[in-house]
């Protein structure tokens, strides 16, 4: 698995194309993410942000181009796909917790059955993670008994339990009531500070401004502009970027 071209690049995406039938959803997308970097992807709905982030762990299959995650090329080989999925945690817009399992079981399931951890160790670690996301007292409840914000924090803990090197966030706050967005963003901010590599699709411009190392603007299945938050919010170059920021910051 070793032998990376550049050891600092943990995600390498080169000229990726994806079609849904005739619809060209991703057009020649290329992006490199460095270790410990926080990349925020913004753009109007239908711009391909979610599709792009979901190709990285093969929830969506790309038809051409190259994706390498932590030195592992993403091919049709199931072993490679599973290896990449072990390295990348994912947080979804709709949380996607397992409703028939308790919070603790949600978190320990994959460590026990994929990482082959002992149940006791997995539970210990799960409790530490729940502590970290601020809801240790909810460990024995079912997801349906938690608020949206609590569910999303459990989802983050569940992803972290696999000790991933990369965390992918697909609009993690879009399904939340306004008063719960803050608690999830705080967990994500803490995660970013701890040095986690993160790729975040979001509409939270405050988060992008405060936490992102780089912002990627996508539109129509293409990457239109990449830059630092400072560049984006003071000096956007492309007309499409300017228009989008105008609309969203009003």
């Amino acid at each position: 698995m070793a032998g990376h071209a550049e050891d600092t690049d943990i995600i390498i995406v080169r000229n990726v194309n994806k079609w849904y039938g005739d619809f060209h959803a991703l057009k020649n997308v290329s992006l490199t993410v460095k270790r410990k970097e926080v990349v925020v992807i913004i753009g109007p709905s239908g711009s391909g942000k979610s599709t792009f982030i979901r190709t990285i762990n093969r929830l969506e299959e790309h038809q051409s181009g190259e994706i390498i995650v932590d030195g592992i090329p993403l091919t049709h080989d199931v072993r490679n796909i599973e290896a990449i999925r072990m390295e990348t945690g994912m947080v979804f817009q709709q949380f996607n917790l397992f409703p028939h399992l308790t919070v603790l079981q949600n978190i320990t399931l994959a460590p026990i059955h994929v990482r082959k951890m002992k149940k006791k160790d997995a539970e210990e670690r799960a409790m530490q993670l729940l502590e970290r996301v601020g809801i240790p007292e909810q460990a024995h409840k079912y997801p349906g008994q938690l608020s949206g914000g609590q569910q999303q924090r459990v989802a983050i803990a569940r992803a972290l339990a696999m000790q991933p090197k990369i965390m992918l966030f697909d609009e993690p706050t879009s399904a939340l009531d306004p008063e719960m967005i803050r608690e999830v963003l705080e967990v994500m901010e803490e995660l970013a500070e701890s040095g986690m590599t993160m790729v975040v699709v979001t509409h939270e411009m405050g988060f992008a401004k405060g936490v992102a190392d780089r912002i990627v603007f996508m539109d129509g299945g293409e990457i239109v502009e990449i830059g630092t938050p400072e560049h984006f919010f003071t000096n956007p170059q492309h007309d499409r970027t300017k228009l989008f920021l105008q609309q969203i910051l009003k």
């Binding site: 072990m86 945690g89 996607n96 059955h113």
Partner: peptide, 19 residues
């Protein structure tokens, strides 16, 4: 989303079905 969450955690197809 349930299948996707199981996939994203790296569960094999069999484990995903089973659990």
């Amino acid at each position: 989303g349930q299948y996707e969450a199981a996939d994203a955690l790296g569960l094999s197809a069999f484990d995903s079905l089973r659990f």
